[in-house]
Amino acid sequence: MLHTFTLALSLSVFWLINSGHNSVLMLSLAALSITFVLYLAHRMDVVDHESQPVHLTRKLPGYYAWLIKEIILSNILVVKHIWLGNQSISPTLSTIKASQKTDIGKVIYANSITMTPGTITIKLEGDQFLVHALLRESIDDLKKGEMDRRVTQLEDQC
């Protein structure tokens, strides 16, 4: 029920941002379309804690702030190595162990790795991630496990 409510809320906000009209006719059409989408989502059985991770809401802003800092730092690193040329890069393929228990934690971790430029998650098998990195140092940073620890903390909240 909670997840249906949050989905309806986010759909209404999205509709309002996209249209910007406030007349009664338009608002009733909006209510109609949102109800239809909710019905479709229930039929597809996708309304649950995975598509609407409301239990993470309290911790997400702090994690995002840290992630944005990481993204900026790794962007600067990758741009530096683009201008330095091909001799300065050291492409590496390596497996990383993830300590998250739930699927959603693993997906957050894998997407965070892919989002920071310089590292890409290629494959997920159980708790082993296959990661390709532009630089050897990025893999060493990941192996130190700060991002892993933060995502696990995020997921433990629930």
Binding site: I71, N75, M115, P117, I120
Partner: peptide, 9 residues
């Protein structure tokens, strides 16, 4: 990785 730079920051 180069495309990743243009797509995030």
């Amino acid at each position: 990785h180069a495309v990743g730079v243009t797509e995030t920051l």
